Amino acid sequence: MTYKLILNGKTLKGETTTEAVDAATAEKVFKQYANDNGVDGEWTYDDATKTFTVTE
């Protein structure tokens, strides 16, 4: 399945996607991606759209 991440960081905004077997796996990938890019904030997940959002 394809999962999407929306980044609403103070210095980085954008979107990315990943292929993962489940939401938990996608979340690990996205949290590492956000961490690597210096984005740390509040996370939400919408199962209907398979979209994670992180907002600083």
Rank of each mutant, 00 (worst) to 15 (best):
M1Q: 14
M1V: 12
M1A: 13
M1P: 08
M1R: 08
M1S: 14
M1E: 12
M1Y: 10
T2F: 08
T2A: 08
T2H: 15
T2P: 07
Y3A: 00
Y3R: 00
Y3V: 01
Y3E: 00
Y3Q: 00
Y3M: 02
Y3S: 00
Y3T: 00
Y3N: 01
Y3L: 01
K4G: 03
K4V: 14
K4N: 07
K4C: 04
K4A: 05
K4D: 02
K4E: 03
L5M: 05
L5T: 01
L5H: 00
L5R: 00
L5G: 01
L5V: 04
L5F: 06
I6T: 05
I6L: 09
I6S: 04
I6M: 07
I6A: 04
I6E: 04
L7R: 02
L7A: 03
L7P: 01
L7W: 14
L7I: 13
L7Y: 15
L7K: 02
L7D: 01
N8K: 10
N8R: 07
N8H: 09
N8L: 12
N8V: 12
N8A: 08
N8P: 03
G9L: 15
G9E: 03
G9W: 06
G9C: 04
G9M: 11
K10F: 09
K10R: 10
K10Y: 13
K10E: 12
K10I: 12
T11N: 11
T11S: 10
T11V: 14
T11K: 11
L12N: 15
L12Y: 11
L12H: 14
L12S: 10
L12A: 09
L12K: 05
K13R: 14
K13W: 13
K13E: 07
K13P: 05
K13A: 07
G14Y: 15
G14Q: 12
G14F: 15
G14A: 14
G14I: 11
G14R: 13
G14M: 11
E15K: 05
E15I: 06
E15S: 10
E15T: 14
E15Y: 10
T16M: 13
T16Y: 14
T16R: 11
T16N: 09
T16K: 13
T17W: 13
T17S: 10
T17M: 15
T17R: 12
T18N: 04
T18F: 12
T18D: 03
T18H: 07
T18W: 07
T18C: 04
E19R: 14
E19C: 04
E19M: 15
E19D: 11
E19A: 08
A20P: 01
A20I: 02
A20K: 03
A20L: 03
A20V: 05
A20Q: 08
A20Y: 02
A20R: 03
V21A: 07
V21R: 10
V21K: 14
V21P: 12
V21Y: 14
V21W: 10
D22Q: 04
D22Y: 04
D22P: 01
D22M: 04
D22T: 07
D22S: 09
D22L: 04
D22W: 03
A23T: 09
A23S: 15
A23R: 13
A23Y: 11
A23E: 08
A23V: 11
A23Q: 09
A23M: 14
A23P: 14
A24E: 14
A24V: 10
A24S: 07
A24L: 13
A24H: 14
A24K: 08
A24N: 08
A24Y: 09
T25R: 08
T25C: 05
T25V: 09
T25F: 13
T25P: 02
T25Q: 13
T25D: 15
A26V: 03
A26E: 00
A26G: 02
A26D: 00
A26F: 00
A26P: 00
E27W: 15
E27K: 08
E27I: 11
E27T: 04
E27C: 05
K28V: 11
K28S: 10
K28L: 14
K28M: 14
K28E: 13
V29C: 05
V29T: 10
V29M: 08
V29K: 08
V29S: 06
V29E: 14
V29Q: 09
V29F: 15
V29P: 01
V29I: 11
F30C: 02
F30Q: 00
F30K: 00
F30S: 00
F30R: 00
F30D: 00
F30W: 02
F30E: 00
F30M: 03
F30Y: 02
K31N: 04
K31A: 07
K31S: 05
K31T: 07
K31Y: 12
K31C: 04
K31L: 13
Q32I: 13
Q32L: 07
Q32R: 12
Q32M: 07
Q32N: 08
Q32S: 06
Q32Y: 06
Y33K: 03
Y33H: 06
Y33W: 05
Y33V: 10
Y33C: 04
Y33T: 03
Y33E: 02
A34G: 04
A34F: 03
A34K: 01
A34D: 00
A34M: 07
A34E: 01
N35I: 15
N35P: 02
N35H: 15
N35Q: 11
N35E: 13
N35L: 14
D36R: 09
D36V: 11
D36P: 01
D36M: 15
D36K: 11
D36E: 12
D36Y: 09
D36I: 09
N37G: 06
N37F: 15
N37R: 15
N37K: 14
N37H: 13
N37A: 15
N37T: 08
G38Q: 09
G38Y: 08
G38W: 06
G38N: 13
G38V: 04
V39D: 02
V39M: 07
D40S: 11
D40W: 08
D40A: 13
D40C: 05
D40I: 13
G41K: 01
G41L: 03
G41A: 02
G41C: 02
G41N: 01
G41P: 01
G41S: 02
E42M: 06
E42Q: 14
E42R: 07
E42P: 06
W43D: 00
W43H: 01
W43P: 00
W43F: 04
W43S: 01
T44G: 15
T44Y: 07
T44S: 13
T44L: 11
T44P: 00
Y45C: 01
Y45F: 08
Y45K: 01
Y45G: 00
D46Y: 04
D46K: 04
D46F: 04
D46A: 04
D46T: 07
D46W: 04
D47P: 10
D47Q: 14
D47A: 14
D47R: 11
D47Y: 09
D47I: 12
D47H: 14
A48Q: 12
A48I: 08
A48N: 15
A48D: 14
A48C: 06
A48P: 07
A48V: 15
T49V: 07
T49I: 06
T49H: 10
T49P: 02
T49A: 06
T49D: 06
K50D: 02
K50V: 03
K50F: 09
K50Y: 13
K50P: 00
T51I: 08
T51G: 02
T51A: 04
T51P: 00
T51D: 01
T51Q: 04
F52V: 01
F52C: 01
F52N: 00
F52A: 00
F52L: 01
F52I: 01
F52G: 00
T53R: 12
T53I: 09
T53Y: 09
T53V: 14
T53C: 05
T53N: 05
T53A: 06
T53L: 08
V54F: 05
V54C: 05
V54H: 02
V54W: 03
V54N: 02
V54I: 09
T55C: 04
T55M: 07
T55H: 11
T55R: 13
T55V: 14
T55G: 05
E56Y: 09
E56T: 05
E56H: 05
E56K: 03
E56S: 10
E56N: 04
E56W: 09
